[in-house]
Amino acid sequence: MSVQARPAIPRSWRPETKPHKFCPGCGHGLILKALGMAVDELDLQDRLIFACDIGCSLLAWDFFNIDSIHTHHGRTLPVLTGLKRVRPELIVVAYMGDGGAYAIGAQHLVNAAARNEFLTVIVANNSLYAMTGGQMAPTTLPGQKTETTPYGREVKAAGAPVLGPELVDSIAPTGAYIARGTVASMIQLKNFIKKALVHQIEGKGFSFVESLSTCPTNWRTNAAETWHFLEKEMSGYFKVGEIRQ
């Protein structure tokens, strides 16, 4: 045995809080890994503010060695708006789930995008409400079984899934950066997050990255089925790529 090896964790992670609080196979770990890698590459650790929202994303409150805020129900965006207006030299990142961003906190996302605030928003889309036990969320796929849609989501009764980046694209004025990544391709996701952070640093406007994420606990899937659902069914409905550069 040679010199004691250290895990390849990003520098901006807080090692003493690891292993983190997410379930086995959770996509949050991967999205936050991509964010950590982007923060390391841009060397932003000491001037970044990380804000997490309600839902499983709040378990990231002690994830980074970065000043962190925790607010509820989409209000990360108004809180960060105030922070950014008072201290424009700071770089602010809002980390939300699909429930916090598209359902209960949708008004904050819509208004922050419409005002083209200098924020970076990262949304984890795992197609259901994970922390409360796997109920139907705005992003649940048609026919997907959840706790509240035991026969599968019916589009006629419950509407079609919300396409977050497309929604922001239709509202945000010129200058916004909008992309959708997936935890299945980590390098692409890291590059999207990095571009979003650079967009804010250069003062161009609102930057929004949605990432398709996994939830084996509430999807009730094993590893193979988890990848299948993410890469085939979710990526089939939610098109991955840059929507506006």
């Binding site: 895990p7 964790i9 992670w13 690891k18 292993p19 196979g25 890994k33 390098i187």
Partner: peptide, 10 residues
């Protein structure tokens, strides 16, 4: 190593 959500592999 890249896909591990917990960075347990090096």
């Amino acid at each position: 190593e890249l896909i591990c959500p917990d960075c347990a592999i090096l």
